[in-house]
């Protein structure tokens, strides 16, 4: 009797384990909902983009000039070029300086990117694409807002003649990042 009882118990445990395995597989497969995981991956990419912009955002100056590979230095050094859709065919489109492009590439590593700039002129938003690459469907965007006075924008394409030096101008630097 004792032996039989033990056998029954073992059988019970074994069948329960089989059931558990089946149920566990079922729950696992129903839990791993793909949109949720893709969202988690998107959030990781977004954090990477946000961190990159934060690293490059520095208001520190050397000899009165922003670092050329900072977001501020990149904006200030957009010179002798044209922005937006008003460019003539023989004009140069504005692109970030080499130092900035190098630093951005180093921080982003394997990721590919597109860089856009937004600002406000007479109450309306203006925009320019500084690095024009076509994002993949899983691309993620992050933004950083930069504040520069008119005096700091001297010689750049954003300098406003006849406007006081202290007048502020806010730029949104939008970085769109994806894995190639």
């Amino acid at each position: 009797m004792n032996t039989k009882g033990q056998t029954f118990t073992l059988e019970g445990v074994a069948s329960a384990l089989i059931l558990l395995l089946a149920l566990y597989t079922l729950y696992q497969s129903s839990l791993v909902i793909s949109p949720m995981w893709s969202e988690a991956v998107n959030v990781q990419t977004k954090i990477k983009a946000q961190d990159t912009l934060k690293i490059l955002d520095t208001y520190e100056k050397v000899d009165g000039n922003f670092y050329t590979d900072s977001l501020q230095g990149m904006i200030v050094n957009l010179r002798n070029c044209c922005l937006g859709v008003n460019c003539e065919p023989n004009e140069d489109y504005c692109t970030p300086n080499e130092d900035f492009s190098y630093s951005l590439g180093v921080v982003l590593g394997d990721y590919d990117y597109r860089l856009e700039l937004y600002w406000v002129e007479s109450g309306t938003v203006k925009s320019a694409v500084l690095v024009d690459r076509t994002p993949s469907p899983n691309a993620v965007a992050a933004s950083r807002y930069i504040l520069l006075n008119n005096s700091e924008l001297r010689d750049s394409v954003f300098y406003r003649n006849g406007v006081e030096d202290w007048r502020p101008m806010i730029f949104e630097v939008r970085l769109i990042v994806w894995r190639p």
Binding site: Y118, W119, Y145, N149, W166, R167, P168
Partner: peptide, 22 residues
């Protein structure tokens, strides 16, 4: 930090308008 103390009202208004629109 960048605001000229004498012009804080106009400066504030510029910042407010631009941030809101962006």
């Amino acid at each position: 930090k960048k605001m000229p103390p004498a012009k804080w009202g106009e400066y504030s208004s510029d910042i407010y308008d631009q941030v809101r629109v962006l």
